[in-house]
């Protein structure tokens, strides 16, 4: 760096940035995505997202049946709705970024890490 006699600071910044990207290209590429662990986290999330909505649906159906004495009907209905909600959760997680911008769900399209 002792040879750096270029008066414009902008040029140095650019070269520093290029050098940093050369040293750790992976980190530079991953930074916009929100950190290195996020991809692995995404994989681990998908399965539980699918199951948990179904669990909530079944629990709600079971509870409503118990409360209103309508034995099988709410369980059937809410199991189906829970399954749909689970698929919706996974879709929110894996859909392309471009569709996130225009999405309007309760999560405002930001289910992705």
């Amino acid at each position: 760096m002792d040879k750096d006699t270029d008066p414009s600071g902008e040029s140095f910044d650019r070269r520093l940035k290029a050098a940093r990207e050369r040293i750790e290209p992976r980190a530079a590429a991953q930074r916009p995505a929100g950190g290195g662990m996020s991809d692995l986290g995404l994989v681990l999330r998908a399965g539980t997202e699918l199951v948990s909505a179904l669990v909530v649906g079944v629990a709600m159906g079971w509870g409503l049946d118990h409360w209103l004495h309508a034995r099988p009907w709410f369980l059937i209905l809410f199991s189906l709705l829970g399954g749909v909600a689970g698929v919706l959760n996974v879709w929110r997680l894996v859909r392309p970024e471009a569709m996130n911008a225009e999405a309007n769900g309760p999560d405002n399209g930001s289910g992705r890490i």
Binding site: V51, A53, V56, V84, A85, L88, N89
Partner: peptide, 15 residues
């Protein structure tokens, strides 16, 4: 469906 999806958050988080 949206309500179920919303309510599934703490469940998926904890499970």
């Amino acid at each position: 469906i949206e309500i179920l999806s919303f309510l599934s958050r703490p469940v998926s988080l904890s499970i």
